[in-house]
């Protein structure tokens, strides 16, 4: 089946490893997307079913429909800044890339803070209807997403500060950018859901 070659394997190039990393992240996004879409499915399933009129809390209290979009706004700012940082990395513009990654990290921390504030001020309890249960599910899972993403973005900023990226080795920012874009989409899915009370 095979014929040997005299090629000797050395360390793999950054591009070879990077292509794999990208593929791996895309597959993990697929798994995460299955989770997120199941949340969307569950939300609308319970909303349409409205079993025993149990969807909305008895006192009619619901969350502000714009809540989710405020978090998405902060996330979009973070993703755009991160994208600019990545472009600067590819062009070896160190100063700009570090500034952009850092600002992207700050925007993410802001989005975490906003999400936490929203959670702390939810005007209903988790048991008060299936809408409230879904709302808690969406906000908490989004919070977990944001914390994980903040770790990644701040890590990228720190590594950029340590000169670990250049025009050749830009794969970590690239795959992180893919993940960040997905987190924006995922948060938007949650925001779309909660528009339909």
């Amino acid at each position: 089946m095979t014929t040997p070659t005299h090629e000797v394997m050395h360390h793999e190039s950054a591009a070879t490893v990077g292509v794999r990393d990208r593929q791996g992240v895309l597959l993990l996004v697929l798994a995460d997307a299955a989770f997120a879409l199941s949340v969307v499915f569950s939300y609308f399933y319970l909303r349409m079913g409205n079993t025993q009129n149990g969807w909305i809390p008895v006192d009619g209290a619901t969350a502000d429909k714009m809540n989710g979009w405020i978090v998405v706004g902060a996330l979009i700012a973070s993703a755009l800044l991160f994208r600019l940082g990545y472009q600067a990395t590819v062009l070896s513009n160190k100063g700009k890339s570090l500034a952009c990654y850092s600002l992207a990290g700050i925007a993410l921390l802001v989005s975490i803070w906003i999400q936490l504030q929203q959670i702390l001020h939810i005007p209903f309890g988790i048991s008060e209807g299936t809408y409230s249960s879904c709302y808690y599910l969406i906000t908490y899972t989004n919070l977990i997403h944001l914390v994980l993403t903040a770790f990644i973005v701040l890590g990228i900023a720190n590594r950029d500060r340590m000169d670990l990226f250049d025009s050749e080795k830009h794969w970590h920012p690239l795959v992180s950018n893919i993940w960040l874009n997905w987190v924006v989409i995922s948060a938007a899915l949650g925001a779309i859901c909660t528009m339909f009370v």
Binding site: S42, Q52, G54, G129, T130, S133, L137
Partner: peptide, 9 residues
């Protein structure tokens, strides 16, 4: 929470 209990929605 009340995801699966029909008694509460």
């Amino acid at each position: 929470a009340n995801f699966f209990n029909p008694e509460f929605g």
